[in-house]
């Protein structure tokens, strides 16, 4: 899980909130595949049709702000998205993505976001905290390393696979 490769879907705007990622009317749905059909519906009704398994999402600052609905990372992950690349994430979205083991929140600089184009093929290298842009001549960009605790949870595939004592004083 140290290297992932996929295509970037770029929706570069700030504050993409959970009402956009999965609108309130779908909160009663708990079937993951059904939720995936409505992922990002507030921004692009065709989204789920455009995404293939293993793709990435690239967005602006404060991605996932708004509600605590875990439907948001679930809908994205089940539509095929494996990582979200953004300058910053809202805290509950970040936790949900990691603790639920759904997808990777990758923090990068604003300049990196501007350089990567919609449709670029990217390698996400979490071991070396880098992105490699295959489409743009293997140009590489730094990503913010995961804090130790987050890295441990990601490695375990979600919080459930760890008892509290395995996490205290990480």
């Amino acid at each position: 899980m140290n290297q992932l490769e996929g295509v970037v879907h770029k929706y570069y705007r700030d504050n993409i909130d959970t009402d956009v990622i999965i609108p309130g009317q779908y909160l009663k749905i708990h079937d993951h595949k059904e939720l995936a059909k409505h992922a990002m519906e507030g921004i692009d009704v065709e989204f789920s049709k455009k995404v293939s398994e293993g793709d990435f999402l690239l967005c602006g600052r404060n991605f996932g702000c708004g509600s605590s609905r875990e439907h948001a990372p679930i809908a994205l992950a089940n539509s095929g998205i494996k990582a979200i690349i953004a300058p910053s994430f809202a805290r509950i979205f970040y936790r949900n993505a990691v603790d639920g083991g759904y997808l990777l929140p990758i923090e990068v600089g604003e300049e990196t976001c501007r350089q990567i184009e919609n449709g670029d093929r990217i390698i996400v290298d979490t071991l070396n905290s880098k992105l490699v842009n295959v489409t743009q001549g293997r140009k590489s960009y730094d990503t913010k390393p995961f804090p130790a605790l987050i890295a441990r949870i990601i490695e375990a595939g979600g919080l459930i696979n760890l008892d509290p004592h395995q996490l205290i004083d990480v």
């Binding site: 509600s67 605590s68 609905r69 509950i92 603790d99 083991g101 459930i160």
Partner: peptide, 30 residues
């Protein structure tokens, strides 16, 4: 609380924070 506006209750002088489903499920366990 399994809701983002759990923050509300901090007005009572408690630490009140919202969490998602996996985190809440974890607390139910541990």
């Amino acid at each position: 609380g399994g809701d983002s506006h759990t923050n509300t209750t901090g007005a009572l002088g408690a630490f009140a924070a919202g969490l998602g489903h996996s985190d809440i499920a974890y607390v139910l366990h541990h």
